[in-house]
Simulated scan of single mutants.
Amino acid sequence: MKFELDISKRLNGGGDEFLLRSRFSTTDRALVLFGPSGSGKTLTLRSIAGLLTPDDGYIKVNGEVIFDAKAGINVPTRERNVGYVFQDYALFPHLTVRENIAFGLKPLFGRLSGKKQRHVEDLIAVFGLEKVAGQKPGAMSGGQQQRTALARALATSPKLLLLDEPFSALDQPLRLRMRTELARVLETFDIPMIMVTHDSDEVESFAETIVVYRNGSVEDVHSARKFIDSGESMTEALCRQVARSYD
């Protein structure tokens, strides 16, 4: 994956102003946006998905321009072909697991084709959701909700998967198990990923490139391979860097 981003966005709320200034590029397939809460990571992810429109700059995925302020290009969210897993999963509470997964495949009018119905059933099987396929999110565990959100995000065969702190709502034992599950999913679907987290363990587990945020800006970009080759602890180095945000 070749990914290029250089954007800025000024936001006002409650009398306070926040300036997002995000710039980085990578050819790695597993990118992690790392830093403390409120540092601009999720705003960047939302901009990539088309859920937030930057004031200036551009976003390119594999050479395709999906946003360019100067050129007046802003590809609609539905046409960007990205899968998005929200921090709280954002499952539709009135729909079953099967209906949630099928949501992005359903035409505006009419029913799913037989091929798409089989695709939904295949995803239900891949994610081990057969026993809860007819249930609604409120009746399911956190792990089942996360798997449903992942299956829904992957149902449209996106070219890029965006994950906003996907493990933050889970307790520690389940978090560890779901990290393993996500690694299996990424390998099975062979899909590039951009993850937002402030958990250094998740960086260790998934990152090839780490983008460190501080106060709305990209402070540094690291290669996980360089940490491995140097023998330096990635967790210690990143935690020292992020700790400066609180000084």
Rank of each mutant, 00 (worst) to 15 (best):
D122Q: 13
T148Q: 09
T148A: 01
P137Y: 11
V126L: 07
V132E: 12
T156P: 00
A125P: 04
K136F: 03
G138F: 05
R152E: 07
A151M: 07
G143W: 10
Q144I: 01
V126C: 10
G134C: 00
R152I: 00
A155G: 01
Q144H: 05
K136T: 03
Q145C: 11
Q146E: 10
S157W: 08
L154I: 05
T156W: 01
E130D: 13
A139L: 02
A133D: 01
P137K: 11
T148K: 09
G143H: 13
A125F: 07
S141W: 07
L129W: 11
R147Q: 14
D122V: 05
P137W: 10
L154V: 09
F127I: 11
Q146C: 03
S141D: 11
P158R: 02
P137Q: 09
G134T: 01
S157V: 12
P158L: 10
F127V: 09
P158T: 07
G128Q: 15
D122H: 13
Q135F: 00
V126D: 15
Q144M: 09
L123S: 12
G138D: 08
S157M: 07
G143F: 05
L129F: 07
G142T: 11
K131H: 10
Q144W: 06
G128R: 15
V132G: 07
G134Y: 01
Q145W: 01
L154W: 09
Q135Y: 03
R147N: 11
A151T: 14
P158E: 05
V126E: 14
Q135N: 05
F127E: 14
A151R: 13
Q144P: 02
Q146N: 13
M140H: 08
L150T: 13
T148Y: 02
V126M: 14
G138H: 11
G138I: 14
K131L: 04
L123A: 09
M140Y: 03
G138A: 11
L123Q: 12
Q145I: 04
A151S: 10
I124N: 11
S157Q: 08
G138Y: 07
Q135G: 00
P137S: 08
V126S: 15
R147W: 11
Q146R: 13
Q145T: 05
L129M: 14
L123K: 06
Q144S: 11
L129N: 14
T156F: 02
